[in-house]
Computed example of a mutant assay.
Amino acid sequence: MGLFDFLKKKDETPENNSIKLYAPANGKLVSIDEVSDPVFSQKMMGDGFAVIPTDGKITSPVAGKVLSVFPTQHAVGILLENGVEILLHMGLDTVELNGGPFETAVKEGDEVNENTVVSTVDLAALEAAGKDNAIVVVFTNMDKVADFKLDTTGTISAKAEIGSISANA
C-alpha cells in the first residue's frame, strides 16, 4: 500500500476499471513473447498477446474507440474506456504490402466491441508474400496499465473472452 493510497476514492480500485479482452480471430492464442518479431516478443512496444489465425476474419479484441487506421491497413489503434491504448497489428512486416491483403472495415472515431469486424485479411496473400500471419494485440501505453491477465492460451474462437486489463487510477 502506497503512502497516499488513503487519498484515493474507493471506486478507483483496479477491479472497477478492468476491461475484458477477447480473441480477435479463430486460431491459436499465444503469449506475446512467442511472436517471431523481436519488437513484439521483447515487449518493446508493450505487453500483449497474439492469435495465429485459422481464417482472415479479424474482430476487435476490446470495446473502445478507433483512434487510428494505418494507411497501409495492417494496423488499427483503439482507445479503451479506462485510457489504455491498444494496437491491433495484423501480420508481421506487413506494412510493406501497402494494404493489399487487408480490407479494413472500421474508421477513425468508430465505436467497436468484440462483435465488430475490424478487417478481413487474405491469409493466402500473406503466405504468398512470405509474411507471418500473427494477429498481435499490444498495449502501447504501459504506464497506464495496472494489471494485465491472460486467462487462457491455445486453440480459441474469435470473440471468446480471454483475459482482462485494468488501468492505473
Rank of each mutant, 00 (worst) to 15 (best):
V121R: 01
G46Y: 02
G48A: 11
F4G: 10
N26F: 06
L97V: 06
V76T: 06
E81W: 09
V51I: 06
L67Y: 07
D47Y: 03
A158L: 05
D143H: 08
M45C: 08
D147Y: 09
V39C: 10
G130I: 02
N113C: 12
F6T: 12
K28P: 01
G109S: 11
V138D: 05
Q73R: 11
N133L: 09
T155P: 12
E161P: 08
A125F: 01
V35P: 02
G154Q: 09
D147C: 11
P38W: 09
L79Q: 11
A167W: 08
V69E: 02
S68K: 14
I52F: 12
G163Y: 04
H89E: 04
T116G: 08
K10H: 14
S36E: 15
E103F: 08
L150Y: 05
Y22G: 05
G77E: 02
M142E: 03
A134I: 03
S166E: 11
L79Y: 13
D33S: 07
V30L: 15
A125Q: 09
N133C: 09
S157C: 11
D55S: 10
S166V: 07
E12D: 15
A63Q: 13
M44N: 13
D122A: 04
D93F: 02
F102N: 00
T13H: 15
L80I: 13
P101V: 04
I165T: 03
K43Q: 06
E81S: 08
M44K: 09
L3G: 12
F70N: 00
T120P: 05
S119A: 01
D55A: 10
D5S: 12
N17S: 14
K107D: 09
V95G: 11
V76C: 01
S31C: 12
S119C: 10
N113I: 14
L21K: 04
F102A: 01
S36V: 11
P24F: 03
T59G: 13
V138W: 06
D110E: 10
A158N: 02
G46E: 03
A146D: 03
A146T: 06
P71Y: 07
T116E: 07
L126I: 04
A23Q: 07
S164Q: 12
K107M: 08
T104P: 00
I156A: 06
K8W: 11
V121N: 00
A167V: 00
I135S: 05
P53D: 02
F102R: 01
M44A: 14
L7P: 14
L21W: 05
S157P: 08
K159A: 11
I156K: 02
S18C: 14
S119N: 03
S31M: 15
K43H: 13
G100Q: 13
G56N: 07
I52A: 03
T13D: 15
T116K: 08
